[in-house]
Write a protein that binds this DNA or RNA. Structure first.
Length: 540
DNA sequence: TCTCGCACTTC
DNA sequence: CGAAGTGCGAG
């Protein structure tokens, strides 16, 4: 089934993310047609074709519905799952090669938003980026066969607005726009960390972009959540919904809430949707202009302000969306350099100027640099940037039976990328670099052809450090096999916080003990360093 | 704006 | 059954 679905989507055209190369502007034209032909599968080349990996967003239609209305994701102190959940179908991997799949969520732009007149508007400059945390899929590392066998779900990933979150959830600022990304890192022995050739690729599905909120702003979104999220079934209105409401209120007769009324009105009006209280339709035309995509190639929008405000086209315009706008570069890379404790890196953080002022031309920093610290023992380190694990060197890891991603962290890039959304996902692929790149070259995003190693552009560079990949990779190779074993390890690292025991995250529990039971559900969410940036960044 | 407890749901 | 994921609405 999935397969079918996936293929169907692919047929439609745009959803498949192709890796290989990220087309740059220059190449855009060639890609416009959409690379239908992708390089598919030539199985001949086993390990090396990370660029041939294809990823299809599961439930894309649902995501599109949300996107057209302006997706909102609730963020809470305790952590809230995303809905729709981020699930993908992966094909084109070498069945025997091990890969690590992880996601991160980066700022889509540098604005803060407000919901007025039934639409999202820019309301100032974004808050300093939060620590970029990564969510490593619990099965990582696992073989290509494992990943391709079924849908890869990131459903347990949670979002929080608690900057001091001890659970390892991904920290976001409310009322800001974000873009989830998927990274696939080859974790084979051959590419174990240290190797400069470790390859990875990044996939971005523009339809998964969202604005984080503490409570829903757009009732259309509320409605979609209620209608599609099984856990919200209790709020469904179908004929009986009213009854539920009434019961809640202790009444025997149906009571209709304002919200429900609004929603119903809206839905009934269909296209007029927005019009509820305040005029709403307004932005349509504008929207169109901003959000367009090319066939597959993401185009950054040059007009930042406007684009942003209209990022979410209303449903009506959806058809219009697929236009092209010019953009500068699509490239995004991940830099996985590793090797420095992330603290250091952090410090080095880049000049704020670069980051923040990235001209429109810059693309979003898609990636970040991971740093790998050798030390992995401490979980805390992972969680908090400031804290470093003391365990020196890989202590734990090496010894651990099941290597896991011990404290690996990636840093996701914070600065805002200003990319408009991309229609299709873009993929990027790059070799891992072993070092941190402080060297930023100002590479334009453009870049990269696929294979070329790129230093990250300064703007992209974030301070964050990451430890993760590396260790992950290396461990992966050694790891026994099952994802299960590593699960616990991972989790343990990340979530544990010295002072705070996290109950909810029992994930880590496993750490010390090897109990097999550890659930693989544990989420692996890592944080990247960050901090230093904040201060500088805020604009004045 | 955000936090909390609630009733309801899925798993 | 209990744990955990939902939006609601009062505060």
């Amino acid at each position: 089934m999935l397969q079918e679905k996936a293929s169907a989507v692919a047929d439609e055209g745009m959803t498949v993310a192709q890796l290989g190369g990220r087309p740059e502007l220059a190449s855009d034209s060639s890609h416009l047609g959409l690379p239908t032909t992708p390089s598919i599968p030539q199985n001949n080349e086993p390990d090396k074709n990370i660029e041939n990996i294809k990823v299809v967003l599961h439930d894309r239609e649902l995501w599109k519905k949300f996107h057209e209305a302006g997706t909102e994701m609730i963020i809470t102190k305790a952590g809230r799952r995303m809905f729709p959940s981020y699930k993908v179908k992966v094909t084109g991997m070498n069945p025997k090669t091990k890969y690590i799949l992880l996601t991160d969520i980066i700022p889509a732009d540098d604005h803060r938003y407000k919901f007025c007149d039934n639409k999202w508007m820019v309301a100032g400059k974004a808050e300093p980026a939060m620590p970029g945390r990564l969510y490593v899929h619990p099965d990582s590392p696992a073989t290509g066969a494992h990943w391709m066998r079924q849908l890869v779900s990131f459903q347990k990933l949670k979002l929080t607005n608690n900057h001091l979150d001890p659970f390892g959830h991904i920290i976001l600022n409310s009322m800001h726009k974000y873009q989830p990304r998927l990274h696939i890192v080859k974790a084979d022995e051959n590419n174990a960390f240290g190797s400069k050739n470790t390859a990875y690729c990044t996939h971005v599905f523009h339809e998964t972009a969202f604005i984080s909120v503490t409570s829903y702003q757009n009732h259309k979104i509320t409605q979609l959540k209620i209608e599609n999220n099984p856990f919200a079934k209790g709020f469904r209105g179908s004929d009986e919904g009213d009854l539920r409401v009434s019961r809640l209120q202790g009444k025997d007769y149906p009571v209709i809430s304002k919200n429900m009324v609004r929603q119903r009105l809206i839905s009934s009006h269909g296209h007029l949707s927005g019009k509820l209280g305040t005029g709403v339709l307004s932005s349509h035309s504008q929207v169109v202009s901003h959000y367009q995509y090319d066939s597959g190639v993401p185009l950054p929008n040059s007009d930042s302000q406007e684009a942003l405000s209209h990022s979410f086209p209303s449903s009506r315009e959806s058809s219009l969306l697929y236009h092209c706008f010019k953009h500068r570069d699509n490239t995004r890379h991940l830099d996985l350099g590793c090797k420095r404790p992330y603290l250091d890196t952090t410090a080095s953080a880049v000049s704020e100027e670069h980051y923040f002022r990235s001209p429109p031309s810059y693309d979003p920093p898609l990636l970040s640099h991971p740093y790998c610290s050798e030390a992995l023992g401490s979980r805390e380190a992972c969680m908090y940037g400031g804290v470093e694990g003391e365990t020196g060197g890989a202590v734990g890891t090496d010894d651990l039976p099941a290597p896991s991603l011990n404290c690996n962290m990636w840093a996701s890039v914070q600065p805002y990328p200003r990319y408009g959304m991309q229609t299709v996902e873009s993929v990027q692929y790059q070799p891992f670099t072993a070092h941190f790149n402080s060297t930023a070259s100002a590479v334009p995003h453009h870049s990269s052809s696929m294979q070329r190693p790129h230093p990250a552009p300064p703007d992209l560079v974030t301070f964050t450090t990451q430890r993760v990949l590396q260790s992950t990779a290396s461990s992966a190779s050694s790891s026994p096999s099952g994802p299960a074993s590593r699960d616990r390890a991972h989790s343990s690292l990340f979530h544990r916080n010295p002072g705070s025991p996290l109950r909810s995250q029992r994930d880590f529990t496993g750490y010390p003990n090897h109990s097999p039971t550890s659930t693989r559900e544990s989420a692996y969410q890592f944080q990247t360093g960050l901090s230093s940036v904040g201060p500088h960044w805020t604009d004045s």
